[in-house]
Amino acid sequence: MHALVDGHGMPLVVLIGPGQGGDNPMGIPLLENLRVQRACGRPRTRPDELRTDKAYSSRQVRDYLRKRRITATIPEPADRIANRKRKGSRGGRPPAFDTVSYKGRNVVERRFCDFKHAIVYRAGVVIADVVAWLKII
């Protein structure tokens, strides 16, 4: 199960993928399914910022975010840092990373704890989402 939540931990997109599947291949489909209704006009489909863990730190995801002008707050994995340093000046510069902004990612982790308590099937996830929304009403 993969989810995209807002800054308050409210689920915006939930996708069920293969159990053995990695996080990275689901990053772009999550963003492409984002639709947040506004008071008037078309729904919003582009977040201002995306905070994720190292699993989403691929060239494909970073290029997608850059193309859509979405600020990425994704730590760089240790192996990529080592490869970049090994290449020297040819390795390029490291991607920007805002440590203060990244501290807000714990909201996502707390929401995943709620999801883990739900049944792993889609119905359980949908019920957990409805309960989360009802708590704020």
Results as ranks from 00 to 15, higher is better:
Ala3Asn: 04
His117Cys: 15
Phe115Tyr: 11
Leu4Asn: 00
Gly27Thr: 00
Asp23Tyr: 09
Ile119Lys: 10
Gly17Ala: 10
Pro94Phe: 06
Lys54Gln: 15
Met26Pro: 00
Ala132Trp: 03
Glu49Thr: 13
Lys54Gly: 13
Met1Gln: 05
Ala55His: 07
Ala39Thr: 12
Val13Met: 03
Pro29Tyr: 01
Leu30Pro: 00
Ala78Lys: 07
Tyr102Val: 07
Arg68Glu: 11
Cys113Lys: 05
Asn33Val: 07
Arg44His: 13
Val130Pro: 02
Ile16Glu: 10
His8Met: 15
Cys40Lys: 12
Ala3Thr: 07
Met26Phe: 09
Arg35Phe: 06
Pro43Phe: 01
Asn24Leu: 09
Val126Glu: 11
Arg42Gln: 14
Leu4Tyr: 02
Asn83Ala: 15
Ala55Gln: 10
Asn24Arg: 12
Pro43Leu: 02
Glu32Asn: 11
Val107Arg: 13
Tyr56Phe: 04
Gly124Tyr: 02
Gln60Val: 05
Val61Gly: 01
Asp23Thr: 14
Gly9Tyr: 00
His8Ala: 15
Cys40Ser: 13
Leu65Val: 07
Leu12Ala: 08
His117Ser: 14
Ala72Arg: 00
Pro29Asn: 03
Asp53Cys: 08
Asp129Glu: 12
Ala123His: 09
Ile70Gly: 03
Lys85Gln: 13
Gly27Ala: 05
Val108Arg: 00
Thr45Lys: 09
Arg59Met: 13
Asp48Met: 04
Gly9Ser: 00
Ala123Arg: 11
Val120His: 11
Asp23Met: 15
Glu32Met: 08
Gly17Trp: 04
Gln60Thr: 11
Pro47Glu: 09
Gly21Asp: 12
Gly124Pro: 01
Arg111Gln: 05
Ser57Tyr: 06
Phe112Tyr: 05
Glu109Thr: 02
Arg84Asp: 03
Lys135Tyr: 10
